[in-house]
Amino acid sequence: MVKELKAEVKKLNFYYGRVQALKEINLPIERRKVSALIGPSGCGKTTFLRCFNRMHDLYPHNRYEGEIILHPDNVNIISPQMDPIEVRMQISMVFQKPNPFPKSIYENVAYGLRVRGVSKREVLDEKVEKSLRGAVLWDEVKDRLNHLAFDLSGGQQQRLCIARALATNPRILLFDEPTSALDPTATLKIEELIVELKNEVTIIIVTHNMQQAARVSDYTAFMYLGEIVEYDKTDRIFTAPSNKLTEEYITGRFG
């Protein structure tokens, strides 16, 4: 199989004001694979993830340097000329804590489409059903689409957020520790879903749970102090890491 790149990170530096949070990051993102970012707390993995959809633009004094090239268009999504809204319309995100909107289940999923100006009922109905099926939530909620999203359990809420993110056919789907607020059963469901989803979309996932990275990802990058220490196929990282720091981390000696 020929490797195909969905995105390429080149010499990325990121600053919160004067503090440099990411240093000289280079990383390929393989198309329709799951890439995991692991590392101890504060290593910059979430900061890195949030560069992909320009979340840092929401807050003042944040600054990017370098490039994240999105293929096949070959555009640098962190260049100042690039509109962050345009980036976010192509790259969706699922957050650490389920964050449904105070709206019905249906409207939560339809939100991204509405933001894009879609208002035809048939189109919305179809997309909502497809996305909810994609997030393996359809059977549980099909009879109560107009119920408030808060009525769902935590795991269901997170799958709803995944459905919301899928509804707009994103090119990349970002997951920021999507199971850290969930119980083991709900976690398992989300993990199975992630493995399922990579057939359709490129996925980047941040996790502090190494077993999770091992279970769901094809590639893993180990980050430490804002740098990528090691990047490789997941089974290699977990069986034969080439860097001593990586080895210490995955064997649980620090982090």
């Binding site: 319309m89 909107f101 957020c161």
Partner: peptide, 10 residues
């Protein structure tokens, strides 16, 4: 994080 959910959708 509720706002971020919305911004992340573009």
């Amino acid at each position: 994080h509720i706002r971020e959910g919305s911004y992340a959708m573009g």
